[in-house]
């Protein structure tokens, strides 16, 4: 690895029914991808609160992914509508904290779109590689309790 490059640390919050299954599908089909995204399973992308996203950045993540079902295909009917509506809130809070909005990646990935998932991981990782690392930007790190 060259001196001036670094590997972005990314946390991905994936809904259980579509996107997590899509990531599994990428695995089954052996769709190669960079190892940077660490996946956390949530029931629905609507569960991902703005605080959770901010906390992840505060913990030093260089990027956060929120992936859910396509609009209309949500396992819970319209949980992902909330995610879509919350998008500007994520951005506003990030802006307030001085975090570039390019560090958040929200996308709909269905259970059959393993390839799309692998592409998203690749593109997002590539994008973050072009940006400086986050560590040090945010000093206060609250405990999980």
């Amino acid at each position: 690895m060259p001196e001036d490059s670094y590997e972005p640390k990314i946390i991905g919050f994936l809904c259980n029914w579509c996107s997590y299954a899509g990531a599994d599908g990428a695995g089954m089909a052996r769709r190669k991808q960079p190892p940077n995204v660490k996946i956390i399973r949530v029931p629905c992308s609507g569960r991902v609160s703005p605080e959770l996203v901010l906390r992840t950045f505060m913990q030093g993540a260089d990027g956060v992914m929120v992936l859910g079902c396509h609009i209309g295909d949500c396992h819970y009917g319209n949980g992902n509508h909330r995610t879509a509506k919350r998008f500007p809130v994520y951005h506003r809070l990030m802006d307030y904290m001085g975090i570039e909005k390019e560090r958040l990646w929200v996308q709909w990935v269905s259970a059959s779109e393993g390839q799309l998932f692998a592409e998203a991981v690749t593109q997002f990782t590539e994008r973050l590689r072009q940006m400086p690392p986050m560590r040090g930007k945010l000093t206060t790190v609250p405990s999980p309790d």
């Binding site: 670094y6 946390i11 660490k38 609160s49 913990q59 993540a61 560590r135 999980p144």
Partner: peptide, 26 residues
């Protein structure tokens, strides 16, 4: 939300991040 509490998800995220900083220092 039981089984997906804030505590649980934040702990999981922190667990991953701490491990990453230990494995691949920034």
């Amino acid at each position: 939300l039981y089984h997906f509490t804030d505590q649980q998800l934040v702990a999981q995220m922190r667990g991953a991040m701490d491990a990453l900083f230990e494995l691949v220092p920034a």
